[in-house]
Amino acid sequence: MKIIAVIPARYASTRFPAKLLKDLGGKTIIRRTYEAAVATALFDDVFVVTDSDLIYAEIEKHGGKVVMSIREHESGSDRIAEAVADMEADIVVNVQGDEPFINKENLEKLIGIFKDDPDNQVDLASLMTPIDDWERIENPNVVKVIVDQNQLALYFSRSVIPYPRDREVGVQYYQHIGIYAFRKAALIAFSTWPMKTLEASEKLEQLRYLEYGKKIKMAETRHLGIGIDTEADLEAAKKLLERYPDL
C-alpha cells in the first residue's frame, strides 16, 4: 500500500493574506508544515500543491516536492485530485498547510483505518472530537457528524444533529475535524461527479461522497491541530515554538 501526503497551499486567504509565507521560527509556515509531514516518516512521499508561484519557489528552493495547480477548484478534494491524478498511490492524506505542528498520532489513526480494512470497504477516513458546549453545538460554523456503530459517518451538518428532542438521552455530540485520508480511486471519482443538493445546501464537500454512496470512517481524537488563521494565531505559534523548540 503506497501512502502519500498532499499539502494544499493557496496563497490567498480572506482573513490572513499570504499567511503560508509568514515566518515562524526562521522558516515559512508552509516549509515548516512540509518538513514536519516528512519527519513523521508515515508517508512514501510528500507533496505541496499550490496555485502560487511564490509558494512553489519556496518549497522547491529548499529541496521539497511541489506541484502547481493548473485549474481553479471549488473544493479541496478537486484540487488534490488534479495533483495526484498521474501519481502512483493507493492512499492520499490531506495535510493542512496552515497547521505546522503536525500531530503524528492523528495521522496514524487515519492511516490505520485503511490498514485495518483488507476488503477495501472504506473510501475515506476522517477525524472527529467530542463537544459538550451547547454554544459550539449550535454554532453553524462548527460542523457536526453522526456515525453508526461501526464509526461510519451517517451525515455531516452545520445544524444540531441529532436534534435534541430529549436531552435526557445523553447523546454525545461530535465536531468534524476536516483532515482526510482518501483512497485515490474515490478522490478521482469525486472530481467527476456533479454536486448534489445536500452538498449545495450545507456547503460541505464531504456530503458529495455520502450522496454518491461512498463510506467515510471516522476516528475519534482529542488532539486538535493548531491552525494559523490570523496574525494573533501566528504570534501564539511563535510563543509556543519558543517554549517547545522541538515541535
Rank of each mutant, 00 (worst) to 15 (best):
I55E: 02
F43T: 03
L54A: 13
I113F: 07
E99P: 10
Y11E: 12
A9Y: 02
A57T: 04
P8S: 06
P100A: 05
I80D: 00
E99S: 15
V66R: 04
R31Q: 13
G63K: 09
Y11F: 10
L42W: 03
Y34L: 13
I91D: 01
A36C: 14
K104M: 10
E35G: 13
N103Y: 03
I29E: 01
R10V: 05
R10N: 12
F114G: 03
A39F: 09
F47D: 01
A18C: 08
T14Y: 03
I91M: 05
V67H: 12
A41C: 13
G112R: 05
A37L: 09
K19H: 09
D51W: 05
L24W: 02
E72A: 15
K65R: 15
A89F: 00
E74W: 10
F101M: 14
V49P: 04
L54R: 08
K22H: 07
H73A: 15
L42I: 05
A85V: 00
R10Q: 08
I113Q: 08
E82W: 04
A89N: 00
S69W: 06
A36H: 09
A57N: 07
K61I: 05
L21I: 02
L107W: 03
V93Q: 01
P100D: 05
S69L: 15
P118A: 04
S77F: 14
K61R: 10
V48W: 02
S52Y: 06
N103F: 03
A81C: 13
S52G: 10
A41H: 12
V84L: 06
L21T: 01
I70R: 15
P118K: 00
V49Y: 02
E99Q: 12
L42G: 08
K115Q: 14
F43W: 04
D53W: 04
G64I: 09
R31S: 06
E88L: 00
A89I: 00
D117I: 07
F114I: 12
Q96P: 11
A9S: 12
V95T: 06
D117W: 02
V67W: 04
A83W: 01
D53H: 08
V46Q: 03
K27G: 08
R15A: 15
E88Y: 00
P100S: 09
P8H: 05
Q96F: 07
G26A: 13
D23Y: 00
A12W: 03
Q96V: 10
T33W: 05
N94G: 11
V46N: 01
N106W: 01
